[in-house]
Amino acid sequence: MKRVLARRLVTSIITFFVTISIVFIFAHLSGDPLAELEDDPRVTPDVIAAMKAAFGLNKPLYMQYLDFIWSVLHGNLGYSLQYLRPVEDIIKERFPYTLALLVPSITLSNYLAYKAGVETGWRRGSKFDLSFMTVSMFMRSVPYFWLAIIFLYVFSVKLGWTPIFGAITPGISFANTWAWLKDYLWHYILPFTVLVFRETLAMLLYVRNTLIEVLREDYITTAKAKGLDEAYVKYRYAARNALLPMITILGMRYAFLIDGAVLTETVFAYPGMGRTVFEAIVNRDFWLLQGAVVLLSASVIIVNFIIDIIYLYLDPRVRYR
């Protein structure tokens, strides 16, 4: 078991460095972030040269790469070209919002998807299953962006239950933490609901399909034939075995959710890393992009590492391989 863990750790570290190298190469091959300044009458070539020197962009590419790896190893993520500030500062002020939005919404949506997936899979072909499937298929094919705008239109503009944008009401000084928390949650609820709604419906199909496959297994028939309680067979025999592939998908969803966050943050004008990463890509803000990727790939790899450990407990076959 220790050997398995050690091997996982080594592959994780290699994966991390490969990921950040790929991002470095693609970012730097795709264009010059300062090129646009050439058309600005306020900027002279001296200014561009000075900025290139300040951000180390005048060095050959391999030197820039070594600089980057060197600073990553030292825990220094450099300066953002766009924001002209340390990348750490930008991440520090935005990442908490993303975490606070994503972690609860993934957790809740996975739990809901698990429950609903097991129930619909168990009763496949029933009215209950069909109605769920139809809504789920429809919602999956609807552009996420459109869905979020509709939520906003209905709940914020028409019903006036929630605010339209931001994470906090602008220009208010709060009397106490409780007042702040209330305002924060009031802004939080809609982006959170949209994310949960969307993710639940997306995950539900995976869970349902794996459960249906498990239901075809002989041991399910045996269990049923033994006259075991339905709920017992459903959760102890079927759901448990269906859980394994789901855990893998869950890890992957965590990585993919950043793209969901980009859209959520954009539509709800909610602060966070998703939008920042997106804008860093558009503006070719190398250092910020690299810093964000270092952070994101590190967190995805850590999540996957944790999932691997969970696997070891859930699936004895892995332990003894």
Partner: peptide, 20 residues
Amino acid sequence: LIVNFITESSTALLAIEKGD
């Protein structure tokens, strides 16, 4: 004076509609 930032123009137009 409060200046806020909304990247998505559809959201900004909803804010105008609602009077936010």
